[in-house]
């Protein structure tokens, strides 16, 4: 038995595709991204990104000037690559061992669709077992907004904004992939 082609996109401008096909491709992308993050499969997760990227976890709602106010994560390609490489050293003690995680992604809504890119919002609930010291089971929840692009017959992401429900509060270690 062969696995179904993942998020395979027919040719053509995104906004001219069959909406059901597009919905399915977007959902498949988000599910796959979630699974790779859950399983700390850093290289494969990083490959989901385009070249020029922004990965943002704001400290509150994501509506402020990032040059004036601090964020939990505010990565361009260079910083995200450093983040992943640090995790891959095997010496990132805040993720040694990696946290077992499972997240549920739902409430997926296409917010805008253009010829080459689209914006999609979704909600998530993430259970993380902090195995590094306390063994606490931690619950994370929030809303993600992705900007996705066509890359050949697949989708790739150029922007991911994660607005945590408790983004205005002190948070425990968050050294994994959100």
């Amino acid at each position: 038995m062969s696995s179904p082609a993942r998020s395979a996109l027919p040719d053509g401008a995104l906004h001219q595709l069959d909406p059901l096909l597009l919905d399915a491709a977007v959902a498949a992308f988000l599910n796959r991204e979630s699974r790779l993050a859950d399983e700390s499969r850093y290289e494969e997760w990083l490959a989901l990104w385009t070249d020029d990227i922004h990965y943002w976890v704001p400290s509150g709602a994501g509506n402020y000037d990032r040059d004036r106010r601090i964020s939990f994560i505010n990565d361009n390609r260079n910083r995200l690559t450093t983040r992943i490489r640090q995790l891959q050293t095997g010496l990132r003690y805040a993720q040694t061992p990696v946290s077992p995680m499972r997240r549920v992604v739902s409430n997926i809504e296409l917010l805008s669709v253009g010829a080459d890119e689209l914006e999609v919002g979704s909600n998530f609930v993430l259970y993380e077992l902090s195995l590094q010291a306390s063994n606490e089971l931690r619950i994370w929840a929030g809303r993600s907004t992705h900007v996705l692009h066509r890359r050949d017959s697949e989708l790739a992401m150029s922007r991911k904004v994660v607005e945590l429900v408790n983004a205005s509060q002190p948070l425990p270690n968050m050294a994994f992939l959100l």
Binding site: F72, Y93, A94, Q95, A133, P172, N173
Partner: peptide, 23 residues
């Protein structure tokens, strides 16, 4: 942003060491 906070490149490791001391 690079160094500090729960997702920074430094502080989460310090937190982990302290948390293991507590344990």
């Amino acid at each position: 942003e690079a160094a500090m906070g729960p997702a920074g490149f430094l502080l989460p490791d310090d937190a982990t060491a302290s948390e293991r001391m507590q344990v």
